[in-house]
Amino acid sequence: MIEFVLSIVASILILVGAIFAFSAAVGLVRLPDLYTRMHAASKAGSVGSGLMLVAVAVYSQDLGIATRALAGVVFFLLTAPISAHLLAKAAHSVGYRLDKVSVYDDLQEQIDRDKPASDDE
């Protein structure tokens, strides 16, 4: 009985995770510029692979394997925002502009505010 429940839960987890990963890839293809693509990539992508690792942890029924899988999930949830933020910050500071459909750019305002100060030096 418990195996039945665990198999059903693992099946649902891997299906939902695969749908998340697929939607991340669709967002990567469909969205207009780097910064909007980053939404799809760093949120849906990490959730997709994380859910599949949770499915392994649920299905294995072994404390060692489950701990390793959950440690992997925590690791990905820690590192995905860091790498996405680094990449976005680097691309923006180098000068890759937002798409025309974007309406507001907070970081550009900050750069414009900092610019006269460094010119005065």
Binding site: A21, A24, A25, L28, L34, R37, M38, A41, S42, G45, S46, G48, S49, M52, L53, G72, F76, A80, S83, A84, L87
Partner: peptide, 11 residues
């Protein structure tokens, strides 16, 4: 970014 997503999908 595509490389990052590729790694995540491979995981």
């Amino acid at each position: 970014l595509g490389l990052d997503v590729l790694v995540s999908i491979a995981i």
